[in-house]
């Protein structure tokens, strides 16, 4: 369960505060895969970052006793001067993995991500798709209660998309996912429930189809 209590999050702009969440209280139940919908700039990524513990509300609290992955997404998350291999090692180490487990992680990430020679090159020369593949492949190695995914499934060629979708489906037999995506078929396929972020509010819907319908209605209004 994830509990948001009176959460307010805004960004200061030159024209005043832009609210992402304005005094939102909401409970997201356990054992459901949540799709997060919202227009560009509505604050989906910020919401994911707050759930992942690397961004913070201006007021209010977000509480959960579950473990969360790092937010996987197109934007960054890796140190550019380090190679793929070094980044894998680094992340394993901060999670306290043994040297043996690190070697296993390297093998499995290398194989899954299909980076080939790029695996030993600095991340700064990676395309955003390659970064996502590395990030996603690495996350599969850990046992989180929630995977936090920001649009990652739509990268790479068709083959890789199918492969990562299958890997994710297998993974979520044992854990849950918080997924931001603009692809409605993906959301319907992976998620059970949905959250719509709009105008400083977020609303939880038990049925992803309902969430998609609400989101479509918002899009038509504007």
């Amino acid at each position: 369960m994830i509990e948001l209590r009176n959460v307010t999050k805004y960004y200061k702009t030159s024209r005043g505060k832009k609210y992402i969440l304005n005094d939102v209280s909401q409970i997201i139940p356990t054992h459901t895969n949540v799709g997060i919908l919202g227009r560009n700039g509505a604050g989906k990524s910020t919401l994911l970052r707050m759930l992942g513990g690397i961004d913070f509300p201006n007021s209010g609290t977000i509480h959960s006793d579950k473990t969360f992955s790092w937010p996987m997404g197109l934007a960054g998350g890796f140190q550019g001067s380090m190679t793929g291999r070094q980044n894998v090692k680094f992340v394993c180490r901060i999670y306290g993995k043994s040297e043996y487990e690190i070697q296993q992680a390297i093998e499995s990430v290398k194989e899954f991500s299909e980076l080939g020679d790029y695996f030993d090159m600095p991340i700064k020369i990676y395309s955003s798709g390659m970064k996502s593949r590395l990030s996603f492949g690495l996350s599969l190695f850990f046992d989180f209660d929630y995977l936090i995914i920001d649009e990652t499934l739509s990268v790479g060629d068709k083959n890789f998309q199918v492969k990562s979708k299958n890997a994710l489906k297998k993974k979520i037999e044992n854990c849950n996912v918080l997924l931001v995506s603009h692809s409605m078929p993906t959301l319907k396929e992976i998620c059970d429930s949905g959250i719509v972020v709009n105008d400083g509010n977020m609303t939880y819907y038990e049925d992803i189809n309902e969430a998609i319908a609400v989101y479509d209605a918002i899009n038509k209004q504007k």
Partner: peptide
Amino acid sequence: ANTALFNYKQV
């Protein structure tokens, strides 16, 4: 020099 690593909440 390490901002990207703050992506992991442990750091």
